[in-house]
Every structure is written in structure tokens, then in C-alpha cells.
Design a protein around this nucleic acid. Structure first.
Lengths: 223, 223
DNA sequence: CAATAAATGATAGTAATACTATTATGTATG
DNA sequence: CATACATAATAGTATTACTATCATTTATTG
């Protein structure tokens, strides 16, 4: 099953809409692959240009700099996450099952072909885990926040917060818990893979471990 | 009351021990100030050299690069945190009170003059909150982990995990919970300050909000 | 179909970054 | 006093993060 999903990404993030041309789409797609491969610090427009056989100057006509490109990718990801959650949850009546579906989405690989835009979802997941905090842990956070560049993350949190409220109307920290779940899913998975002494993982399946831990976290807090 | 605390920081982190000379100490001290002021991305050895009226080449004789210097600062911080916790907890008999003391340390400014090394603790706190994840969210994580550069973070987690076990021997995720507490204290405080819609903070005192949230988190999970 | 606008490519250039190397100078120690 | 060592001064390189210019290709529309 395939859908044509397109997200209203804030047009101040880019100079020219990458969705509007084949080259633009290729820039974003290959950027995901390259950031995955060499990491965001090593990633440059020059290297990306060589990869897709265009020039640095051309990429600069789409994005001011590599931070904006990463921000674009993350905006897409946050919209996509919310879309996925809403889509998967729609026919579920039990709120508990909805929250469990949410945990499943947070801890599984993204489904491959639900969208036409065929970004490599496995790698997208990985770069979100590794690089996402780098878009907000910056000196100009307040300036870029003013431009609404984190709106989809906030919307996603608000949506999850509402599910939490549905399950436990008295709960006092639905937004903090939402962002904690998202951030914890990233860093605990990263720790499991690279710094396992910061976790209690043994010879287990990583995703299963994280899912179990988050399940415990969420439902103990909402008990 | 003043102590002479000195931590056994892994000597592969630096080229020349900064603790061994006045200039070395000044490099670390001023690095904290400068990273706080301009952020780690903008921070360069050149700028630091100008700040302390020495040369780039001289700083390079102490640290291979700015990432190692940040790692050094964080190693110092992790040792210091464990020292502080052990110190404050030693005369407390109730395990619950011990854990509450831990939360207090995690969410308050660091005390100013407990050590001779007079780093600006308020700024140190801030750079730990903003920059600490940048030392591990890197492509060469596995290589630098092999060098034991995260040992004090692991030790700190193990120590907290042990306090958790003391309180609730059956608890299954003491290490994950420890790292979650530390990371969550950083990112929820950061969100409160810069992206408050990701939290439930109102017109409250930031530190108090985070402390209450973490208290709820920790003791609900251990109930 | 011609005119022209827009996107891309090719090339060059600049300031800053992240280093390395060399040589000179000052300073501590035995 | 010798000499070892730390630091200073200076220079140099490759890469990064851009900006600018102009030529060429492709698309639009009158």
C-alpha cells in the first residue's frame, strides 16, 4: 500500500523547495545516506555534490548550510512520525493499546514503503538517533526556535501528550513525559549499541530491550 | 571548607597533563568559560589562545584537538559528580534520602568552592547540559570508548545503579535508569529554558520543576 | 518557434578552521 | 654554567564554509 504523503515543512528552512525538483529530492535522499555513512561532522556540501555529481554551488541554492538541511530532514521525520502514529492508532479503541502502538513505532525500524519519498528509513532512523540533538543543542537555538523550526517536534509531543492524557487524565507531566520517551528511545538505543554499561542490556535484541524498558517507564509513571 | 581533590583522569585524553602546570590549568579553566560563551562549535584553539595570551601551538601541546579537551572537562565533571554524591550521601542512612540527595545534586548548581580547582561551576553545569552529548554522538565512538574515555561516566552510572539497587533490590534496569536520570536532567532543563512546549513548565523555577519531575520519575519507577 | 527566464554547471576566490613544522627565546634544575 | 624543557613567534597546508561570476542547458510562454 502506498500513499502520497507530503508534509508542510516550514519554507524558511530551505532556499528552494527540495520537493519541487528531482535534484532537490536527490539532495535530501543522498544527504541522509551520506550523513549516515560519515556522520554529520564530516558531512560537507562538497562531498555531497561529488556523490550526486553536481556542484557545491547548486546545493547551496537549496539550503543555506548543512544545519538547515539536517533540520529539514528532522522536520520531515517528525511529521512522518506523527503521521505514522495517527495512522496506526486510528482503529484502536483501547488507549493502552494506542500507547503500546506508539512505543512500537518509537522502537522499531520505520516502515519502508508507506510513502512515495523513498528515503532509506533504516538510515534515517540511525541519523535521527545520532544527530537529532545537534539541531537544537546550538548557540542560536532561540533564534531558530523563533522561526518555528521545531514546530513539528512540538506538535508530535503535543499529540503524544494528548494520548497520555486520554489514558491518565490526572497526569501532570504529559509533555515532559513525551519528550522524555522520544529522547530516551534515542539515547538508550545508542547506549545499548555503543556504551552498554550505561544500560542493563545483556545478549538481547536491542529494539526489544528498549521497548521493554520504555514500556516499563511509561506505564509505571502512568499507574 | 576546601579540599584538595584531584581525579585520576585517563592520561590518554591529553598530550601533556594540564594539571601539571599553571598554563595547563588556565587552558582548561578558560576553555570552560569560552565554550560557555560561544558554544562548542564556534570554539577554537586559536580563540582560546588569544583569550589567555598564548599561542595555538602551545595549546596543541596539551590536547590533540578540541574534542579531547571537551572530553577532559567532562571526565573531570563525571568524577566530580561521583565525588560530590558520595560525599553528601555518606552520613545519610535512609536510602530514600540518599536518592533524594542525588536528585538534588543533579538539578542544582554545583557548589562553588568544594575543590581547589576553581572552574566556574555554573558555566560548567551549562556546558555539560548543552555539550556533553557531543562527546559520544560521534562516528569514532567505538574507538574512543575502547580507550576507556567514558570510564568515569560508567562508574558514576554504576554508583547510582547501586543506590537504586539498595533502595529496590528487585529493580531490573538500574543502569538504564541512572543514565536516563542524568540525560533527562540535562535535556529537560534545556527544553525548559529553550523549548518549553516540550515540557509542562509554567511560570516556575526551572530547577525546582526538573527536580520535581525527576523525583516523580525515579520514585514512581521504583515503587 | 523564438524569446526569455530559470536552473544548473564550471570555475574561482576568500576567510576561517584545524592542524603541523621550525626556530627562537626564556626559565627551571642539577 | 650547562642543558633540558616549556613556551612564543611565525609560517605553512589542506579543508571547510561559504560567495561570486559567467556560461550553458532546460523549461515556459507569448
Amino acid at each position: 500500500m502506498e500513499f502520497q504523503v507530503s508534509f508542510p515543512i516550514n519554507n524558511k528552512i530551505y532556499l528552494r523547495d527540495p520537493e519541487s525538483t528531482d535534484l532537490g529530492k536527490l539532495i535530501v535522499k543522498k544527504a541522509i545516506d551520506l550523513i549516515y555513512t560519515i556522520g554529520f561532522e564530516q558531512f560537507t556540501f562538497k562531498k555531497l555534490a561529488i556523490e550526486i555529481q553536481t556542484t557545491e554551488a547548486t546545493i547551496y541554492r537549496y539550503f543555506e548550510n548543512k544545519h538547515r538541511l539536517l533540520l529539514y530532514i528532522l522536520n520531515w521525520y517528525w511529521y512522518y512520525m506523527q503521521f505514522l502514529i495517527e495512522y496506526r492508532v486510528q482503529n484502536i479503541t483501547s488507549t493502552k493499546l494506542k500507547l503500546e502502538m506508539l512505543l512500537d513505532i518509537l522502537t522499531s525500524d520505520l516502515p519502508i514503503s508507506i510513502t512515495k519519498t523513498d528515503y532509506n528509513k533504516k538510515w534515517l532512523n540511525e541519523i535521527v538517533m545520532v544527530e537529532s540533538s545537534k539541531v537544537y543543542l546550538v548557540k542560536d537555538i532561540d533564534a531558530i526556535n523563533k522561526e518555528q523550526f521545531f514546530q513539528p517536534y512540538k506538535d508530535l509531543c503535543a499529540y503524544i501528550a494528548q494520548l497520555i492524557k486520554e489514558y491518565q487524565p490526572k497526569y501532570k507531566y504529559p509533555h515532559s513525559l513525551s519528550s522524555t520517551l522520544i529522547e530516551t528511545s534515542h539515547n538508550q538505543l545508542y547506549f545499548s549499541l555503543h556504551l552498554p554499561r550505561l544500560t542493563d542490556i545483556k545478549n538481547q535484541d536491542y529494539q526489544k530491550y528498549i521497548k521493554t524498558y520504555l514500556h516499563h517507564l511509561l506505564f509505571s509513571l502512568l499507574a
